[in-house]
């Protein structure tokens, strides 16, 4: 069962994933967020390598993906959100993002680094992507 109330992440997690995104520049950054999908709350960020090593594309490194997916599962937690950054464009799923989305029950959390001074509340946006269509959902930080 998926939360109807959007995605909530603690401020510290938001800061952590934005720091990861900045550290990965000029490339897009990515990672997984674990927590409770029923509550719509992510409590931990797991940064991953971008196998594409590209400023325009990302692919969670397959070794990181399998290791973290089952570590979350074995801990009795859920994959809550899939994070990636856009280095120059808005935090809105691109056509590539929508076409490649394989996790209809997870949130897609995007960061835009287009404005280096943007606070987390405006740099981050949360989405659900289903059958190629993206729907923005409320994001609560704190």
């Amino acid at each position: 069962m998926v939360s109807d109330h959007g995605l909530a992440i603690p401020s510290a997690v938001a800061a952590e994933l934005l720091a990861h995104a900045r550290a990965e520049l000029p490339y897009e950054a990515c990672g997984l967020l674990a927590g409770s999908i029923a509550d719509g709350r992510a409590t931990a960020f797991h940064p991953t390598r971008n196998a594409e090593a590209s400023p325009l594309r990302y692919s969670v490194h397959p070794e990181d993906l399998v290791r973290i997916t089952f570590a979350i599962d074995d801990a009795g937690e859920d994959l809550v959100a899939i994070f990636h950054s856009h280095t120059r464009s808005a935090a809105v799923p691109s056509a590539t993002d929508r076409r490649a989305a394989m996790y209809p029950d997870a949130f897609y959390l995007l960061a835009s680094l287009a404005n280096a001074d943007a606070p987390p509340e405006s740099a981050l946006r949360a989405w659900r992507i289903h059958r190629g269509h993206a729907f923005e959902v409320p994001l609560t930080i704190g």
């Binding site: 897009e28 990515c30 594409e52 692919s59 993906l65 120059r88 993002d97 996790y103």
Partner: peptide
């Protein structure tokens, strides 16, 4: 395992 991929372009 479904991949997690995409990108701004």
């Amino acid at each position: 395992l479904p991949a997690m991929a995409g990108g701004s372009r």
